[in-house]
Design a protein around this nucleic acid. Structure first.
Lengths: 222, 222
DNA sequence: GAGGAAGTGGCAACTTGCTGCCACCGCCTC
DNA sequence: GAGGCGGTGGCAGCAAGTTGCCACTTCCTC
């Protein structure tokens, strides 16, 4: 990368971002924040696994904040992912004001700002100027503080569930044991349980009892 | 007892009933039916344990039918008992028409009819005359057929729960693990789980998920 | 066709929940 | 005070659920 901290560097496409700024992600020490309208943030090929791996090896407790628009809660898969992330210790919030451009700030030292997609590719500008980064960071902070915790947000907006999830809820609601339910749905025991765990995350439940409570609460059962 | 099948024998009080007709209860082979307005039926000292014991030793599947008035569902303890009985294989139904006098029929061979309490003591008449027994039995049958299965009845009438049960539901609903919940309520793990099991019977649930569903359904949670 | 992402399912180790058995206590009745 | 009864709690053994790990497949993209 460059040696001049006041020179912004623009990278085109996620491929290049991963190659030339990957070390920034891997090198996060204290805080990693990101704001985005959708979930494309992590489409960088090969990066996610490496980041997870790097994190596992360090004992440093990294604070991760992720801010999204409500639209990410529109489909079950994205939502599931969000809850998984939250479950791994990241703070996830939803804000109703628009987040057109993706913003990433690492350790208050470097910011990565995405531009609009051009021919399917987005440009990423890596900024290191302390004042600029601080400014971006504080803006993020303000939005963050006004936003709503994911679980809290969920309380008033039931998740959108697919057919299969509803069928699993039906099995659970009928009091079937996992084995019987899995057989009936044509799933392996492992997969069925994976699904149940995902559903429980979606429902923000720590026990099956709680999950049942919420499922009914949100009107997800017959 | 008597040798003349057409001579009815009247016994005063449950003590005497237990002593002189106990063998009838123990000797039931095919069917044991009883109808009562309340749950005093089994107040016979020492009998219950012996009956349970006798039943355990025989492999014969005894059909047990118990018919009650809705008022037995008025308090939690009686209700719990009912569900325990049902759980051990007895058929339990509720009928809304009055059942002033307790009626017991064993194997269609002998009927025991209770009279109204006199100075706190009820009289029990043991009848063996085939025609009388058959007649009583068929009357019972008619009422039975018109009555509602306990679980079905419950669906429209939520159980009445005491303070402790509600607190347990709250613990479950908060996603606490049994150990933490028991500690918080000042109960042993064993007792807490016993309570949960009882609640689940009460809610006619075969899994905690189902219990959560029903608890919400019946409006038993905040 | 190489490589990555996402999904599936088997296996195993572990936690949690469930229940029968037994001993004990307090209460009530005879 | 002996005995029944209901309730409690420890313990043990089993059933059920939870999770990580890994190998494999499929689909998609470069």
């Amino acid at each position: 990368m460059t040696v001049d901290p006041d020179r912004n560097v623009t990278l085109r496409g996620e491929q290049e971002l991963a190659e030339r700024a990957g070390h920034l992600f891997l090198g996060a020490e204290r805080e990693f924040v990101c704001a985005a309208g959708d979930l494309r943030t992590w489409a960088m090929p090969g990066m996610r696994a490496r980041i997870v791996e790097a994190r596992r090896r360090t004992a440093t407790p990294l604070t991760v904040r992720k801010l999204f628009n409500p639209q990410v809660l529109g489909d079950e898969r994205a939502e599931r992912h969000l809850f998984e992330v939250a479950d791994r210790g990241a703070h996830v919030r939803i804000c109703t004001t628009g987040l057109p451009y993706e913003t990433i700030v690492i350790d208050d030292r470097v910011a990565i700002l995405a531009g609009p997609p051009v021919r399917g590719e987005r440009a990423y500008t890596v900024v290191r100027s302390p004042d600029v980064v601080r400014s971006v960071s504080s803006l993020f902070r303000a939005t963050w503080d006004a936003a709503t915790e994911l679980a809290e947000f969920r309380r008033v907006r039931p998740p959108v569930l697919g057919q299969e999830s509803l069928r699993i809820l039906a099995m659970l609601g009928a009091g079937h044991k996992d084995e019987a339910a899995a057989r009936e749905l044509g799933l392996s025991l492992r997969t069925y349980r994976r699904r149940v765990a995902e559903l429980m995350r979606l429902l923000d439940a720590r026990s099956r009892f709680e999950a049942g409570l919420r499922a009914r609460e949100l009107g997800l059962t017959g």
